[in-house]
Nucleic acid binder design. Sequence first.
DNA 1: CATTACCTGCAA
DNA 2: TTGCAGGTAATG
Length: 303
Amino acid sequence: MPELPEVESQARDLRHLVTGRRIIDVWVGWKKTVATPSVEKFRRGLIGRRFKTIQRRGKFIIIKLAGGTGAPLALISHFRMTGHFRIAKLTDSASGKEWYRYPADRFTRVAFKLAPARAGNPPDILHFSDIRKFGRLWLIPQAKITTLPELRDLGPEPLDPSTTPTVFVQCLRRYRGMIKPILLNQSCLAGVGNIYADESFFDAGLHPTTRVEKITDQELVTLFKMIKLNLANAVQHGGSTVGEFIGMRGKPGRHRPHLRVYGRAGESCKRRRNGKPCGGTVKRIVVAQRGTHICPVCQKVRR
DNA sequence: CATTACCTGCAA
DNA sequence: TTGCAGGTAATG
């Protein structure tokens, strides 16, 4: 579920569903999902604390916790390829031992049992589900959020007004080589992944293998605008959902039909000029070991 | 730079 | 059975 719009959608759902809720138990089914600290400290740190605020940074979700003794803590998540949160009610009467399996989900790696929202209600289970087990969770003091290496080296937020086209262009000028891998490395913008990179290159009429040093400032500004547009539209639609459901209650994102190249190999290009279709066929190539989708008519290779 | 590793499921 | 998947870190 993983690019900025999908993570933003999850963060918003979390905000509505778990803000203020208290964690009363934690189950860890795959130890490596907990990046830091040890599983025991992770459980001890979380139990008894409440979800206070929920923010997104790039593809990370940062949950600040309240309560407990000692330094205030933060729970941080990264979904990588298939991670996502889901919430379910623990209405089963046999809710004792295997509460984390309710409802049945083979892919739950970590589960958080939340105290009932109101007396008399059943507890809720917040599942961190992740088919491929690449997703990670961190529990660290809030004071260390900005120094966590994974967060420290992130570029600016694409949709933040303080991230101007100039900021973007000047950052890219520090690099040389193919534009796509540079854009995907998160250091000039945080949150752009494979789908929205391909869509933005298409909209900007840029071939993803073009070397940055061969791209003019003006073209980079256009690329930046297209990135913002694609991300903002996708956020409006609740993300793109490619494989699994992404909504916290199982609702998929609605942006998929708006994609113009990603996942459309072999189909006709959607671009029209003066009302006439471009006539090209979307092609799948490999750039920096990632599947890449282009229209060979709209996006010319340049050396 | 490119390749490999981390994992599992699914479609061809 | 092979290749592919929304990501990133580690290693030549």
